[in-house]
Each structure stands twice: as structure tokens, then as C-alpha cells.
Design a protein around this nucleic acid. Structure first.
Lengths: 199, 199, 199, 199
DNA sequence: ACGTAATCGAGACGGTACGTCCTGTCTTCCA
DNA sequence: TGGAAGACAGGACGTACCGTCTCGATTACGT
């Protein structure tokens, strides 16, 4: 048998198709939002058959979850030597991520589906809460080691308070700038009683 | 006195039907959530023709907005003479409202749609944020007058932090009891530095 | 005359309204046909409430029946002294009535509903068949009296054959002129064996 | 050689579904008539989604036309050697076809729609008139060849007269038996002057 | 002359069917 | 054997009319 064609017949386009689907999903999500998002539109945009999507994802939510999961930029934990500078940097990063057009849509959607689909709460927890709590934890540990912070301060609680406020602000206060200044004010308030600099 | 009851010709719209529609909407919202809510199901549940609903509301969102607007129970501002007792009472009420099946669904939906439909953000602001801020403000003023609280404390900020935390908890932590204890812990933390009882 | 005008109490029904309704019905029937005819459109066209129509007619068919009943022009039985001339005149009249735009729509509709609604078959029978059979009968009797026709000829049968042919032609052969000449040919054929002029 | 089987991509339309739809249409047509026929009911009866019907037929009329077109039983031209026997047989067949429940409904509908939808008149002409004229023509030719019939007799005209009478009777005279005897009487009358048996 | 009672227009009511759109599954053919 | 194309059953959408029902406002008649 004259073997001219190389390699086995299989799935050479598989990864390309993956990318196309996820990209189309994110694009449409940013354009029409979660409500107006249809699998059919995603398939058309990606130049792909519906079956190809359903073969990979059992439900629309799963697809979106994957798309978001792949897309979400990572938080970099800073280490400036100062508690305040570190926290400012972290919150700047978080705000940047969350306040972009896609970010707003994503958060709204995740929140919306969290109560319905446990899977989404999990994604949220894994992608949003854990990294931010981790960052807070690291930063606070360093500050405690430096004596900047009293040792019994609960980093998770402060982190959750800030995250909660951020979400609330994102959803109901459109002005990006106002959000940032409000966040800074909140941070001041939260830390005023627990930092040792008053001593 | 001149009676200026302006009445359009034709049969007037039935207030009983109004009620039936809104009630059915709330019932179904609590049962199947916003995603699973269909006008057809609402009409069937209310024993009403679809036309009757569409005559009143041009879109599903409009109907739901109205239903929520009419339904939301009012917050009663307590006056026990103690800041802590007042705040506990307010948060107990808020948690009761928000953690009921309908409350959870409502909040998830409002949040989800706030970024898409400005009208929803407005409803939320009017029905949720303002009353709570108002309550917080009154309670804090009384506490300041009693000398329980330093005068420069920002009631709105504390209220927003608590509300944000509550929302976050509602969406991602299913256990009602855990939420309540976590909320109490957060309140302790927020007030620890601003109350004058350490003096 | 002891027979006074029997009148029920209350406001009497407006005859103007009667006319407006029937006229609107005929107008719309000619315009959109039976299929596209709606009570609502009739009411709007007549400047009348739907109730006013339903008070008079229990169903759309009843209304249409009445409208047609009032409208249908009467057949005038000719008396020229000649069988052929009389028959030609009758068929000319019948064709004129049936081939007008309203006539075509009406016949199509009556025929269409005859099998469903007995009432319509009755109207048809009363308004179309009886007058034509009557005319044929009178004309044939005169011809028999004149010795033009053998006495045992069945006028009804010939009339029915001609009517059936006319309907078939109206429905499936659009050309008015062709219909008329074909009808004349049929008449020639039907009478060829029964008239005494060949003797 | 070169296979030119033009095949469009994607899943081909199911012929079983085709059949189910057309059969359900005919069944319901016989049961509830054209007026009471709904696409939704057809879909339900056929166990098929509405979309599947609309994909094939753009309008109710188109679907019905197709259903009738496929269904109409063929007329078998008899050859008994006798004009009378042949004609009796043909009319027996025609009456059987036309007087069945489905037949009555079908004719009523075709007639009703002929004036509105040209397509229907065409179907009627192709499916009803042509075969019957053909049969009449063949039978009459044989009779002429046998000397039973004078050569100048117009088979089409007689056929049309009989068909017209049949339609008229179907639509306005419910009794099947009466129709058959009336048809026989008409046939007697039409042939009395043209057959040579009196010679 | 005035109340009684049925009329009028307008339009809301519970329904049914429409034709469209999307879901998630399935078939068929192509590379 | 994976993938595009698209047919499939199902179900909700928002619209159009159906025939019935309330409204407030007009008429005529019979006291």
C-alpha cells in the first residue's frame, strides 16, 4: 500500500476547534451577554457544527465555565515590603480584571448562576475567592512577620469584606473611578484598627 | 370638590388579575428561578391568558420587576437603646428576607440582571440598599447621641460592607446558619475599633 | 287594526348599525375573502363594538349568511315567447350574478361551507337553487303549453345539470367568455333531444 | 460512470416522517374538515414537531395539496363491451371516491380554495377532471366503434355535466343513495338522444 | 319628566393556534 | 473516525382573533 499521507487519520483540527469555540463564546458573551447567548450562534460564529460543541460540553453552562476558566487572567501576588502598597496593588489588579467589559459580564453571570448551578459556585470559588484569599493571606503573614499587623487579624474576613464590596459596587455603580476610591476608603477603614502603626 | 377621576373607555383592568399574575410570578420565581421562568407557566398558574400578561408588561423583566417591587417586605428599624442589639435585629431581619427561597432567587436575579437592565439596578437600589442604609444611619445616629460611637463613623460604608458580605455569602455559601455566624463575626470586627465601650 | 307595534322595553337596536355591519361584511368579503375575514375587522370597519355584532349573530357564518342573503340580486323570469330566448336570458342573468367578484367569492364560500354548516346549504338552496328551478319550471311550462317541448321533460334535472356545470366552470375556468359559450353549447345539447322543433 | 447523485450536506429528510405528516393530514381532514384543521394537531397526530412540517410546507394549503395529491385513488377504466355497463361502473367508482368521508371533505375544500389558490385548481384539474374525461373518452370511442353511439357525441361535455351534477349533489344533498339514483337518472337523460339503440 | 331597561362604543378577559426560534439528539456524508 | 451540515421532537416565544364579559354613556318607551 502506497502510504503517501502522513500520520494517522484522527483529530488534527481538534485543538483549533477548541480554541475557536471558546473564543466565539467569549466574544459573544461580551457582545450580547449571557441571556442572549445561544449555542447555535456560537457554532455559527466558530464555523463549527453544533454536535462538535455538544460532544465537548454537556450544557451551555459547562461551555461558558470552560471559556471563562481558560480566559481568566491570573493574580500576581506583589511583595513590596509594605502592607499598604501590597494591598493597593492587589486591589488594583482585581479591579482591572473585574471592571473590564468581559469581566463585568462574567461576574454578573457567575453570580447569577451560582445559586442555580453548584458548578458555577465552585468555579467562582476556585478562580476568584481562593487566589484572592491566598494573596491576602501571604501579604498579611508577611506584614505580621514585620510587626506591621497584630497577629490575630483574620485575613480571610477582610478579604471577603473587600470582595463583597467590590462585587456590590461593580453591579450597581457604573462609574469605575468611584469604585476605586470607595474601595480605598473601605480598606483604610478596615485596617485602621488592626495595624500597629498607631502604636 | 371636583371629582377628576379620569376613566378610559372600555372595561377596566381587573385588579384581581393583577394580583394573581404577580403572585404567580413570585411563586414560580421561588420554585424554578429566573432562568426556568416562562410567561406561559405564569399564565397557567395564575389562571390567566397570556395576552392578559402581555397587555400589562412588554417583557418578562418588566413583569418580574413589578412583582418584586410590590412584594418586598419592609425593614422595621428597631430601637432597643443598644447599638449592638439594634444592629443584630436589623441583620436578623435582612438575613430573614434574603435567605428565604424567594429572597435567594430574587437577589440572584437582580444581581444577574443589574448589569444588563438598568431598571433592575434601580429597583435593587430603591428596595434593598436605601432602606438598609437608612436603618443603619438612624441606628448609628442614636448610638452617637448616646456616646456609644465616635461621631465620625461612616454608617453607609459599614452598611455596604455588611450587605456586600451578605450577598457574597448568599450566593456562594449555601448554609444559612454559617452565614449568620459569619455575619456576626464580621460585625464584631467592623465595630471593634469604632465603639467607645473599650473606654 | 288591533295589532299595535309590538316593542320590547329598552333602547331598540339601531338599523343604521345593522346596515353598517352587513355592508362592512360584504366589503371585506370581496376584499380578503372568507378565509381572511375576521369579526374584529368587520367591527372596526363598521365602527362598531364586537358585542353589537355578537348580539345579532351567534357566529361568523350566521353574519355572513345574513349579509349574502340581503345582498343577493333577484333573478327576473323573462317571458319572450320563445324557450331558447328565455333560457338564454336566464343564464345570462345567472352568469352575471355569479361571475362578479363578490359573486365568485360568495359562491366559493357557500360551497366550501355547505358540507360543514347545514345552514349554509339551506341558504344556498333557498337563494340559488329554488329561484333558478322556479324560473326553469315556469319557462318550461310555458314552452310545453306552446308545444315547443315534450311534456315529460324534467325541468329540475336540466336546471341542475346547467347549474352544476356553471359552478364547475366558475371555480376552475377563470375566463368568463369561455364559460358563457360553453354553457350555451351545453344548453344546445340538453335540449336537442327534447324539443319538438325537429319534428 | 460518473455518479451525479446530487446530495445536499447534512441529514436528509426522513421519508417516514413525510408519510406520517401526510397521513395525519388526511386523517384529520376527514375528521374535522379543512376549517378545523390545525398544523399543531397534525404535528401532534403525526408525532412530529411543528418545525418539521414548516420546513417542508410554507403554508397549510401547500401541505394539504400535497396530501391530497399523493392520496387520490386512481380510476380504473372498465371494458365490459357495453356503453351502459361501462358508464355505470365508472360512475360507481367516481361516486365511491367522492362520497367517502375524506372524499367529501376533499372536494369541498378543493372547490373552496380553487378560487383563491390557483395551485388547487390545477390539482383538481389534474387529479379529478382529466382522468374522468379520459375514461369517458375511451368508453365513448369504443361505443362509437361498436355503433352504439352516434359519432359526433361530445364525450367531454357529457362528462363535465355529470361531474358538475355530482359536485352539486355532494355539496348540497347529504343522502348518498339519493345521489346515486339521481346520477343514474341524469345519465339516462343525457344518453337518451344520442344512443342508437332506439334504431 | 323621569326612571327603566336594553342598546351602544370600547376594550379586558380566558383561550387556541399561529409561525419563529432555540435546545439537545440524531443521522448522513466528507475528508 | 472526527467534523460540518442540518433534520429531528419538543417547548416557549410574542401575535392575532375568538367569543364572553364588564364598563360608562346613550337612547326610547311607559308610566
Amino acid at each position: 500500500m502506497s502510504q503517501t499521507t502522513k500520520s494517522s487519520p484522527g483529530r488534527p483540527r481538534s485543538t483549533e476547534v477548541n480554541q475557536a469555540i471558546l473564543q466565539a463564546t467569549l466574544d459573544l458573551l461580551a457582545e450580547v451577554g449571557y441571556q442572549g447567548l445561544s449555542i447555535e450562534a456560537i457554532a455559527a460564529r466558530a464555523g463549527v457544527g453544533k454536535t462538535t460543541i455538544y460532544r465537548r460540553y454537556h450544557a451551555k453552562e459547562e461551555l461558558i465555565a470552560e471559556a471563562i476558566d481558560r480566559n481568566r487572567p491570573q493574580l500576581v501576588i506583589p511583595d513590596t515590603g509594605s502592607l499598604w502598597a501590597d494591598l493597593e496593588e492587589v486591589h488594583k489588579q482585581a479591579a482591572e480584571i473585574d471592571l473590564s467589559p468581559l469581566g463585568r459580564q462574567t461576574i454578573a453571570m457567575i453570580i447569577s448562576l451560582a445559586s442555580t448551578i453548584p458548578q458555577f459556585a465552585e468555579i467562582y470559588w476556585k478562580k476568584y475567592v481562593i487566589p484572592r484569599r491566598k494573596a491576602a493571606s501571604v501579604i498579611f503573614e508577611r506584614a505580621k512577620a514585620r510587626g506591621e499587623l497584630s497577629p490575630e487579624v483574620d485575613a480571610d474576613l477582610i478579604c471577603d469584606l473587600m470582595t463583597g464590596l467590590l462585587f456590590k459596587s461593580i453591579l450597581f455603580q457604573p462609574e469605575t473611578e468611584q469604585i476605586e476610591s470607595y474601595m480605598r476608603r473601605a480598606l483604610d477603614f478596615l485596617l485602621q484598627g488592626v495595624t500597629s502603626n498607631s502604636l
